[in-house]
Design a protein around this nucleic acid. Structure first.
Lengths: 212, 212
DNA sequence: GTCTATACCCTGATAGAC
DNA sequence: GTCTATCAGGGTATAGAC
């Protein structure tokens, strides 16, 4: 419709610039001046759209939350139907992000979550919404796996476990600037899930010889 | 020997104050003025002992690293000999720390690790040394478990997995201000270890009925 | 070694012309 | 809505008397 590049598009440039900078440098280390330069706007424009820096952060968290399907899950799950493999494809996506940045940048939500020790309630709500959506997606995969997993298994708890593995693994990878520990953690998670699948109600032990 | 309260004791007061403040408020959010007030010293004293703020952080990381046995492991392992239970006692210690602070404060090393996106090499070395010592301690427990665990199990990888579970769990507990997700993650880790113990070379399956 | 005073910079945020 | 210029405050770090 509107071909004009201005209007609401300026606000979007600010939010996208903030998303990138918060991811790379962190929230506290990103100054308003950094934001303005990256977005190519001046301070009058920013403060026209946002009351302050924290409101830019809220917009970024909303952007992540709103884009979790298209930006995160869809790319990771392209061509993958098996629900269990989708979980590890998601984890592989974070691995790629680590490798592509020399293990410097990890999960933006987790970074901000630990960076702000006493975030204001709306910020915490935004962080929680992102974590919850992520956990929901993984839980959905586990539910889709149906009887392949033991009935007694708490799907919600395991989904939460997947998230802690990712976040903890990313933390170590970034600290050591090496994916090795991320891989170790994901490998252990894989082993745990393999064991659960063997115990699944759909698993009829065909022989005493297990898996090929 | 020396009964005088001054001398090197001032330096120690600064480091201890910094340890507390960095834990509570984070590194970046703690100002030099905060440090001086808490330590009860003035800026001249601080800059007499340390070139700058970052060097105080290095001293704090050294303090954590040097005290991991007496301050962290010994209290958590008091009266607990079983190596596997020691791992969960360690995790229970972090749970207590969370509960005692309304789930506001978690692992100080992990917080700083994610707070500083591009830490200077000596800081990263200090963080790595702490993570490595922690992982070593857990790995030692796993090695002590000997044949109770499967021979094929990678002790180092599992120790790393324990650390990621703790760090990720603490992150979620702090974000949600609720230990529930920490408990879920640790519970899943417990289940994984239970399965491994059942597969251990020392486990002779006595019956088809498993665990009472 | 410890104190007081302060330099100097960068921060988030604002004022007001256009 | 966008620009320029700038404010007030807090940040780290320093200078120099004692």
């Amino acid at each position: 419709m509107s071909a004009q590049p201005s209007q609401q598009e300026t606000r979007s440039r600010i939010v996208v610039a903030a998303m990138e900078l918060f991811w790379q440098k962190g929230y506290q280390s990103t100054s308003i001046a950094d934001l303005l330069q990256r977005a190519g706007v001046h301070s009058g424009s920013l403060y026209h759209f946002f009351p302050g820096k924290q409101d830019v952060l809220l917009a970024v968290l909303d952007l992540y939350h709103g884009g979790i399907d298209e930006m995160l899950l869809a790319p990771a799950w392209h061509g993958i139907d098996d629900p269990i493999e989708r979980i590890f494809a998601l984890l592989a996506g974070y691995r790629e992000a680590l490798l592509g940045t020399d293990c410097s940048y990890g999960c933006p939500i987790g970074s901000i979550a630990l960076e702000l020790h006493e975030p204001d309630p709306p910020v915490r709500a935004g962080l929680m919404a992102n974590f919850t959506a992520w956990t929901d997606a993984v839980e959905h995969c586990l539910v889709d796996a149906g009887p392949r997993l033991p009935d007694r298994l708490d799907r919600r708890a395991l989904a939460c476990f997947v998230l802690t593995t990712m976040e903890g693994g990313v933390m170590l990878a970034r600290t050591y600037r090496d994916v090795a520990r991320y891989d170790m953690a994901v490998g252990q998670l894989r082993q745990y899930l393999d064991q659960l699948l063997q115990q699944g109600d759909a698993a009829r032990p065909p022989r005493k010889t297990r898996r090929s």
